[in-house]
Amino acid sequence: MNNFYNEEKKYSKLVNDLKNLPHIKAPENFEFNLMTRIENKNFGDSKIPKTTSFNIFKFLAPSAIVLTAFILFFIFYPSKNEIQNQIEQNQTVADTQTLIVQNNDKIEKLIPNKVERKSTTKKSVPSNSQNAIVENKTSKLQELFNQKAVSVDEYLSGTTVSKRTIQRSNIVKSGDEPIVDGFLIEKQTDKQTIEKYRAALDSLRKAQEKADSIKKSQK
């Protein structure tokens, strides 16, 4: 506080001179000029303040633009089917594999009938041991068929064939066997395999004959 008064004292002469400076007065025509400007509404840079009121039309244009953008976004928004989902792709592969298994089951149903038809040509009932041998060999054949299983009808009709190579290969490929493209087998049929199948069929036939002969002798 003392410091403040000291400052006042320090500048007392200056302050006194400032107070005694002559007062400038407005020109005589000041009021006349002012009132003339007001009457003529000659306000120069100053403008009459406008009272701003809420106007709904001001908001119509921007709101229409926003609404249009919103609608267009939903129309052209990429649907989730177009987005490649890795999980869904894996699911498709899994579905295809299930389909193959189902087709194999169908074939399994067909194969025993064929074998049975062949075995029942002589109308003989095999014994338990012979039945066991027959079933064993039949199962082996089924395995072979399963490895090569292709749902041909569905493959031709295109119901199970996917455009994707990986899925197609899942249909046509079985195990470590060479890829079968349609009906053209890329690799030539191995003679040894054919001989193997023939031998198996012959042994089945022989077993059937033995079974028949045993039945006859029992009679």
């Binding site: 002012l34 100053s46 403008k47």
Partner: peptide, 11 residues
């Protein structure tokens, strides 16, 4: 000052 008075009148 004229401008001040005009502003006072308008506002």
């Amino acid at each position: 000052v004229q401008e001040t008075m005009i502003k006072f009148y308008l506002n």
